[in-house]
Write a protein that binds this DNA or RNA. Structure first.
Lengths: 211, 211, 211, 211
DNA sequence: GATGAATGAGAATTCATTCAT
DNA sequence: TATGAATGAATTCTCATTCAT
């Protein structure tokens, strides 16, 4: 095979991205190192030059994903011009996702063939997002729009429920079924946070309406 | 090895039970067919005479587990002498353990080394338990102890949140942390079902009290 | 590959013998499991069905060799009709080796490419032969032909010297050089055991004489 | 990494010394080129600029070691003021340690993880030391303290026995066992060289005495 | 002289599955 | 029904060596 040298950053990224895609497509266990290197057109030695085990690249991918999610969440949480209700809405709904990259992340978290990556990331994202959301709940408590004790624990329950249930793929729900659960989730969130009924209404425009 | 003939039913059950135990102890992927047959003292050929693949026995186990869970839940749900609140408490708390075989729902679903089996069963159990719980919610609505719209969807959200979050192992929570989340979960359930605050109080005796 | 079934004993022996030959020819480290199975025409699974690691087959070979050596030595040592001097002569010289099998063992112990197997076996054979030879020394002391204190330690030193030095291959000695060292070794043995000078003379017929 | 230029001699020596240390610590086979260069902080390319294979550096080390041993032995052998007995004692005992670099012959040859390097060096050192020791034996014969025919062959046998047996590690002997064999070795040496019994007595102060 | 990214042929081992008896 | 020897593709990982810069 021709020797193609790239900068370490390029090569590393190339490997991470390819692995990420393949892990999503076929699952971590079923995706062999061989598949990854064949896809890139690079030698086995090169793979192990950058990552010293298959586990290590998994960690790299999970970290990378979580860093993106957390960064995004922190931007929202730290925005001084937004009120707590708006922030909460932005972070709990999917409708705020603009760019493709962030959307991919959400996609990635819920792939069917992707149990391992999925579960690890899921749990981590609950753990890392919850403190950020808890701060927003506290802000909301002060602003008078929420009235919730135990913000961290509350938010963790709501996040967990949302993450797992609202993923159409995981539970094999139809679009309409997902929508129905989204509406209910919103009501539960409102009740749990002590928000005024209907505060999160616009989070769930009926996707069937225009059809 | 001596050839020991058993009735097909006995043999089949023996294999399923052993596999189930081992899958829970070491996980599905890490448990080889060899481990199973060595444990029983049966030959490779026998295993493949009863199940044509390792996947097939997994399905058999998941089915078996869910049948048990659902049966137990239906017994509770159909008990004419119990009110909705009591039924709900029995099925959502840990205190309902009856016979050794069924154990506790939560326990059953959240074994440590047991991600694979666990996740498959988890989702299925949310799907199959939710109609039963939804019926109880409807009963509760009639009895006036609950006041919840969309019982099925509501119950699915609450089950999902409870299942995943309240497993200390999955999120690596300490006993105290699990307890704190249990208390919060109970409050969210009350609010979501429109139950009187404190209805489920006895579900969470503080495990730290005597210490 | 055609499936050829043999009795476990046949198959096991086939593998051990092939491995033994190849370890001798190319050395333990350089001989891959692939080489062995290719040579036999058997699958990798079969190899690992009989031996659970490459190390394990090495042990099996070493054990097998040592058992043969020790058996032979014990037969000599326990012969009631022989005096100590004769026994000593038989076990310390190479000239007693009759059958091809035992000769192979000696060959095997000193192959050039065969460091690992060689060293392990060498040391083991000093350790296992020395108690047998020590008993003969004691017999000799009683018979008045020897007069040696510390029989075990003495014998170990003499065995070690003989094993390593008198192997023409290890030190790359010519036939004549080996003969010269054999003569000297014999004198050292005589002095060390307190035997009469010349007692072991016939051990070393000059190999150059008839040429 | 910063490019640090050294004189070729310095660089070469640095590599040889590091490799030597690591080969001793972990063994030749188990010590990868990567370990060596990482330890020095030099690049792969640099290593292969100075040595064209891993084997080549092994040879360099063995040569270097033997040169040191031989030099030291020759210094002793050529000392005009010393008698043969003293010289012999110095070279066969452990008590002659002078400078840090040369250490003790025995020590040097019998490092623990060091089978490969060890065996290669062992045989070479018997071959190269024996002529020097043989000369001392001849001097001793003239001085009347020894009375040994075939000095070269005799010395080779004694060196071989001592080298291999008296290494506690190789045979896994305890300290006491090594001591016992040392005492016996000394007696065998005396007898073989025709020295007066007890000539080498002080070679083996009982290490247990003070305990 | 020096760098270090890249190579790729192997290494040992695992394991679900098959099949002759 | 039952056995267990046999299969072989697949897996992760190692490491001496090369070579463009």
């Amino acid at each position: 095979m021709a020797r193609i040298t790239k900068t370490p950053e390029e090569r590393r990224l190339e490997i991470v991205q390819t692995a990420e895609r393949l892990f999503r497509e076929v699952g971590f266990t079923k995706c062999s190192v061989d598949m990854i290197i064949r896809d890139i057109g690079v030698s086995k030695g090169t793979f192990y030059y950058y990552f010293k085990s298959k586990e290590e690249i998994l960690e790299a991918i999970v970290d990378r994903t979580l860093v993106q999610i957390v960064e995004m969440a922190e931007q929202v949480a730290d925005a001084p011009s937004l009120d707590a209700l708006t922030k909460m809405q932005m972070l709990l709904s999917d409708s705020h996702i603009g760019d493709d990259d962030t959307h991919d992340i959400a996609e990635m978290l819920h792939m069917p063939e992707n149990r391992e990556l999925h579960e690890i990331t899921n749990i981590q994202s609950v753990m890392r997002l919850s403190p950020i959301l808890a701060k927003i709940v506290e802000q909301g408590n002060l602003e008078g729009v929420f009235s919730a004790g135990q913000p961290l624990e509350t938010v963790q329950f709501l996040l967990t429920g949302s993450q797992f249930l609202l993923d159409g793929r995981l539970f094999a729900f139809s679009e309409q079924e997902v929508h129905d659960r989204r509406v209910v989730a919103q009501q539960i969130i409102e009740k749990s946070l002590g928000a005024k009924p209907g505060s999160f209404d616009f989070m769930n425009p009926n996707p069937m309406e225009g059809k």
